[in-house]
């Protein structure tokens, strides 16, 4: 990389697929806990255990990523402002509640686990928007996108235990699809560096078709014609689309801010210049 290249945004190197796995597994697991109260009572133990396992797996991947894993308990210190600390505390509550709910399945405990899962998911959503150095993550809409993606994944995962909740899942993926579209529009309008937009532009059709269009059609087919297999495939695709979006968001769109010179020195009487390499001119 030359010195001049260094002025442009480049992809961050601190969070890789392991961080993405936390958002994927943790988001799906907490989404599942949130969705649990609408499921049949007999599914509770399996759902609660699956949710707890998914959240734990996500945290395990984060643990693999940190530089000093044996100091990992320090993560609990800064609840005052850090969403990562808050996520850690929320994970403790969500894991405890879901494991207890799996052993003593009752509506009250499942609701407590759902609330804790919701808080965990909200913390995850805020983690990305607090990353001010990454324009594609810090957009306020990313919080809503992560939340809705988690809810959708949770609703979709119910298909693992029996017939999916078709109407609920359909509504979730429609709202998520609208949010994804809005995110894409903001990126197109220059809210992210050029390289991030070019990657999003390339992958977005795949994400949208996999996560929104095909599942929506399949779920509608089930609603209209009573085709449970279509609903199950739709749920699987809705889940896969969510994971695909989050994987791309974390591992492909994480270009940093780069550098900018809003005003060059006016030596030589030339016109005033400004420079923000790697960003679209019309913003």
């Amino acid at each position: 990389m030359t010195l001049i290249d260094r002025t442009r945004p480049w992809h961050q190197t601190n969070w890789d697929w392991r961080a993405a796995m936390n958002f994927m597994c943790g988001g799906a697991g907490s989404g599942l806990l949130v969705a649990a109260p609408v499921a049949p009572r007999s599914w509770y133990p399996a759902i609660e255990l699956a949710g707890a396992c998914a959240i734990s797996l996500g945290l395990f991947f984060v643990w693999l990523e940190i530089g000093r894993p044996f100091r990992s308990l320090n993560v609990f210190i800064h609840a005052k402002t850090s969403w990562m600390t808050r996520e850690s505390w929320a994970s403790l509550v969500a894991l405890s509640a879901s494991i207890i709910a799996a052993m003593l399945p009752s509506m009250a405990l499942v609701v407590v686990a759902a609330l804790a899962g919701g808080v965990f998911l909200y913390c995850q959503a805020r983690i990305l928007t607090a990353a001010k150095g990454i324009p594609a993550w810090r957009l306020p809409i990313v919080s809503a996108v992560i939340l809705m993606t988690g809810f959708s994944e949770g609703m979709a995962l119910l298909a693992l235990f029996g017939r999916p909740m078709v109407v609920g899942l359909f509504l979730c993926i429609v709202v998520r699809g609208v949010l994804w579209r809005r995110y894409r529009t903001l990126a197109r309008r220059g809210a992210v560096p050029e390289k991030a937009w070019s990657i999003l532009k390339r992958y977005f059709p795949l994400v949208e078709v996999t996560g929104t269009v095909v599942p929506a059609v399949l779920l509608l087919l089930d609603l209209a014609l009573g085709l449970p297999l279509a609903a199950t495939i739709g749920a699987f695709l809705a889940f896969a689309g969510g994971w695909l979006f989050k994987f791309i968001l974390v591992t492909r769109l994480g270009f940093n801010q780069g550098f900018a010179v809003p005003k060059f020195p006016s030596i030589g009487g030339l016109q005033p210049f400004s420079s923000k390499p790697g960003w679209p001119n019309s913003r």
Binding site: Q12, N14, W15, A19, V62, E65, I66, G67, R68, P69, R71, S72, N74, V75, S82, M84, I127, A130, A131, K132, G133, I134, W137, G254, N256, Q257
Partner: peptide, 12 residues
């Protein structure tokens, strides 16, 4: 510091 890298992605 645990080397989580969160500060690095938060720094513009």
């Amino acid at each position: 510091c645990i080397g989580c890298g969160y500060c690095a992605v938060a720094c513009p």
